[in-house]
């Protein structure tokens, strides 16, 4: 039996819970992810989709189906991000995948890239630095923002390597965020379909927190107390470093894992700091947004 999971028309961080609800808890069924009506896919949405494709393939040993967007421009954009190159390995694709050469598109700072080990992190960090410098300058950020951006990217990717228990994905893009902000933004999105924060931290933290242990308390412990699944006291600094970085540049950081989402919410956004009771979704999803500075 095949069940249809509709991809939201605007598929991004704000509609991800709608997607997770539609995904539900798959049983012995094949899923068809229907993106034919989708008009926009953010890096967060696209790599979330890849992560779930990977999870289903690992769980069911069968590729789910994916219909690609009817809108030619949208499909082209997805192709430019490198999405289809990886989606082809994880989904049975339906629809015409547009051919795009290696254009070095200025809005795609880092194409959708798999992260499985430390080598991948080195490669990602190496590739991002020159391109990020140019884009962040355009956003009106000071030169030292570039290294911080690369450092945040490195730490976000390492969360996969160190904690997910499986591979994941990263993408970095810059675009004009008209609907929410009316400014250009640089966005890092990192996702995996691994064990999630709650399972990862449970051996060292669950007992301490007791009955309150949940996806939400696990996220709080990681982001605010800098705890890690390792007993090494030097561990767990990556997320707190990302928090400092977004604080400095009026950015937004959002971590979703299981049924909770914890965000560092800047003044320009009206998201809630903690959302609990969300539709469950495997692994962890991280988004970091750095907006153009106001004077720009």
């Amino acid at each position: 039996m095949t069940r249809v999971v509709e991809i939201p028309v605007n598929f991004d961080h704000d509609t991800f819970d709608q997607f997770a609800r539609a995904f539900g808890t798959p049983e012995d069924e094949r899923l068809l992810f229907d993106a034919h009506a989708t008009k926009w896919g953010s890096p967060y949405g696209l790599i979330g989709l890849l992560a779930i494709g990977q999870w289903l393939l690992e769980q069911q040993q069968a590729k789910p189906l994916l219909t690609i967007p009817n809108d030619r421009e949208v499909a082209h954009y997805w192709a430019r991000t490198g999405f289809f190159r990886h989606a082809d390995d994880l989904f049975e694709l339906h629809g015409k995948v547009p051919y795009v050469g290696t254009t070095g598109s200025s809005d795609v700072l880092l194409e959708v890239t798999p992260v499985r080990g430390a080598d991948d992190v080195h490669s990602v960090v190496d590739r991002i630095q020159d391109r990020a410098a140019a884009i962040l300058r355009e956003l009106g950020l000071e030169p030292q923002a570039t290294m911080g951006f690369a450092m945040a990217l490195s730490e976000a990717c390492q969360n996969i390597v160190e904690h997910a228990g499986t591979g994941g994905w990263v993408a970095v893009q810059a675009y004009h965020w008209r609907r929410r902000l009316g400014r250009r933004v640089a966005v890092i999105a990192v996702a995996d379909a691994g064990v999630g924060f709650r399972t990862s931290l449970a051996p060292t933290q669950a007992k301490r927190v007791g009955d309150r242990w949940s996806d939400a308390t696990a996220l709080e412990a990681a982001l605010f107390q800098g705890v890690s699944r390792f007993r090494d006291p030097g561990r767990g600094q990556g997320l707190t470093g990302m928090r400092r970085y977004v604080g400095r540049w009026e950015g937004k950081l959002s971590l979703r894992s299981g049924t909770a989402r914890l965000s560092i919410v800047p003044g320009w956004d009206d998201d809630v700091p903690m959302a609990e009771g969300l539709p469950p979704f495997p692994g962890s999803q991280v988004q970091l947004i750095i907006p153009a500075q106001q004077s720009n």
Partner: peptide, 15 residues
């Protein structure tokens, strides 16, 4: 050294 991240700063210098 171009970029030093927190993990490496900890693993090399702090340790």
């Amino acid at each position: 050294v171009r970029l030093l991240d927190l993990s490496c700063a900890d693993e090399v210098v702090a340790k």
